[in-house]
Amino acid sequence: MNISTKMIVALTIVSIIAGFALAFAYEYFKVKIADNAVKALNESIGAVIPGAISKELIPSDQMTIYKVYDKELNDPAKQLLGYAIVTYASGYQGSIKILVSVTPDFSKIITFRVLEHSETPGLGGNIVNPDFINQYEGLSCDKQIIVIKGPSKKENNEISAISGATISSRAVTKALNESFQKAKAIVTANE
């Protein structure tokens, strides 16, 4: 076998074996990986809507919105616990992925959770702190949430920015503000 043939045979055979091994491995692991993703999503939804038992994805190619239920409750009117909405904020260091939950009538925020972010640890990174998130709980979805620098009043739909992380605080608030009306429109259109 001359050198050229040897070269072709060597690289091609190694590539074939690699391709086979990888495809095989992917098939083997993909069930568990998909499982992990489902578990993570359910866990997040459970965290933002207490008592969540089941969910239903609303068909839309614009936003990811879940109707969240507890079908075991006796009163059918109370079975819809709320909506879990995925929204993205343009943070200081990149995109912030947020899961926000609202009441069934879209009137109030239940809470939210930061799923992914690349903000600076200790500054923008503090958007995951309960102290920051608690400020949003119970605020109205119908009015704009306002970010102020000093102490805030919930009755005015205000939240205090994290000191040293105004941009991150503002980004999260803006994303939430913009998501409510859009999500409401999609949900209503779907009914």
Binding site: S4, I8, A10, L11, T12, S15, F20, L22
Partner: peptide, 27 residues
Amino acid sequence: MSILFSTILMGSIGLIFSIFLVIANKK
């Protein structure tokens, strides 16, 4: 079957690049 497709794809990439290298080696 995706396993077959992946194997053929990787094999083809290997084949094409090794031919490139044969040509380069000669040149």
